[in-house]
Design a protein around this nucleic acid. Structure first.
Length: 423
RNA sequence: GGAGAGAUGCCAGAGCGGUUUAAUGGGGCGGUCUCGAAAACCGUUGGGCAGGCAACUGCCCCGGGGGUUCGAAUCCCUCUCUCUCCGCCA
């Protein structure tokens, strides 16, 4: 959420940012309402000051045996007017708050302006495209042949694009999750969390999934709970409404969670196999940091996610997203994409973002820099470290040996009972 | 799911409609005393909104929301959460 005062005094910048992100916001309507709100607020506050003063006088007169009937009578009218103004104020605030929720975050100055994927900037590429001396087989064929997954039966249970892993495939999922969590906790000092997979409306608004992305989420109407699209939601809301001790920052969490996405309206080739599924597994990284350090911390976080891909020996690239590709709540974002040899394309496996104080404002997450100092909003960051399905795609297609088998990257061998290949 | 109890400041904990601008402890911070420390004593101690260049001023916040009243932490309604007991359950 942007601060009302900030919008008021940086109107042109905000408008430019909304355009650069390709969003549409009722900004003029908001400004008009905000002005009306402040005017009424001032009137109401003046009347309340009056009421407080006279109420004290009434109490004093009564205790000294006087009869303040005249004052009580005149205050009756004041109270009525206060009530009218408060009602009006509540009505306007409901509207301004709702409008405010649709303002996207401001992009960081280091983000390139652009409208499409083509204007993202590839900042580095790691490794080389694997050279196979045979025609690479797509992962859906490898997986079906080795009995790693069974999409037909997954559909029987929940519908199309619900994946089902079995045998070594299920074990591979478990191995990857453990491998990633071990790396982030042991090597990079993240604290492991096992969060709920459902979250309430308040939390979804806090991280910015609501109101804009309501259609993308699974919603349990009876309890008004949402299935989390990412562990970012529970992890970031972990400190909702709190003031953190500045000396504890940065606070870093990692969590495995299933992620649920309706992906309404996406069909066809893009969704073949594991490319795009409604439920997938992911290890997430979340940090609470000081405003001064957030962009440096973002670089570190990207490095932590990259370390996973490097350990797995997968060819990948890192892109800095342009303004038009940036998500609603993000100020700056790097995407990590792995190479799919059979599909001959890059697949996004991680999105690492700095949200500035946007989420912190919505969720009320602050820190106190030092004893007696004023509380400030933290900056929140998150990134996938990393998402499993497309990582599995890259592993199967990169390490296929041409005889129907798949060798395993060394880092995974200990997590797969010492086995060096899937066959 | 049923019955009951509760939610107050950094923590503990008072508060029976108007000297409560939230008592009293404890903790933290600052000071006096001391060579230094302890003890003792004194002072201080959150958040938000609006106006103002500013010093500052006003308003709001006792779990959330609404109501009664000239006036609400206090009375009423409602929601959420926590605890105790019962039921159900992997």
């Amino acid at each position: 959420m942007l601060e009302a005062k900030f919008i008021r005094s940086n109107l042109e910048r905000v408008k430019a940012a909304v355009d650069a992100k390709g969003e549409h916001v009722e900004i003029d309507q908001y400004i008009a309402l905000d002005e009306e709100r402040r005017k009424i607020l001032q009137d109401a506050d003046a009347l309340k000051a009056d009421r407080n003063r006279v109420s004290k006088e009434i109490a004093e007169e009564k205790s000294q045996g006087g009869d303040p009937a005249e004052k009580i009578k005149s205050m009756k009218d004041v109270s009525r007017r206060i009530k009218e103004l408060d009602d009006k104020l509540r009505d306007i605030e409901e509207k301004t708050d709702a409008l405010l929720m649709w303002f996207p975050n401001m992009p960081d100055p280091s983000v390139p302006v652009g409208h499409s994927e083509d204007e993202n900037v590839v900042v580095r590429t790691w490794g080389e495209k694997p050279t196979l001396d045979f025609e690479p087989v797509p992962h859906w064929d490898i997986g079906e042949a080795l009995g790693l997954f069974d999409f037909a039966r997954g559909s029987t249970i929940a519908g199309s694009n619900f994946s089902l892993f079995k045998g070594d495939g299920a074990k591979l999922v478990r191995a990857l999750v453990t491998f990633m969590l071990d790396m982030h906790t042991k090597k990079y000092g993240y604290t492991e969390v096992w969060p709920p997979s459902l979250a309430n409306r308040d939390c979804m608004t806090g991280t910015g999934q609501l109101p804009k992305l309501a259609e993308d989420m699974y919603h349990c109407q009876v309890d008004d709970l949402f299935l989390i699209p990412t562990a970012e939601v529970p992890l970031t809301n972990l400190h909702k409404g709190e003031i953190l001790d500045g000396e504890r920052l940065p606070v870093c969490y990692t969590a495995y969670s299933p992620c649920f996405r309706r992906e309404a309206g996406s069909y066809g080739k893009e969704t073949r196999g594991l490319n795009r599924v409604h439920q997938f597994d992911k290890v997430e990284l979340v940090k609470f940091v000081t405003p001064e350090s957030s962009n440096d911390e973002l670089e570190k976080l990207v490095g932590n996610a990259e370390a996973v891909l490097q350990a797995l020996g997968l060819h990948y690239r890192v892109s800095l997203l342009c303004t038009g590709e940036l998500s609603f709540a993000a100020a700056k974002c790097y995407d990590l994409e792995v190479w799919s040899p059979a599909q001959q394309k890059w697949l996004e496996v991680s999105s690492c973002s700095n949200f500035g104080d946007f989420q912190a404002r919505r969720a009320g997450i602050r820190y106190r820099p030092g004893k007696g100092e004023k509380a400030r909003y933290v900056h929140t960051l998150n990134g996938s470290g990393v998402a499993l399905p497309r990582t599995i795609v890259a592993i199967l297609e990169t390490y296929q040996t041409g005889d129907g088998k798949v060798s395993l990257p060394g880092a995974l061998v200990p997590y797969m009972d010492g086995r060096e290949a899937l066959e």
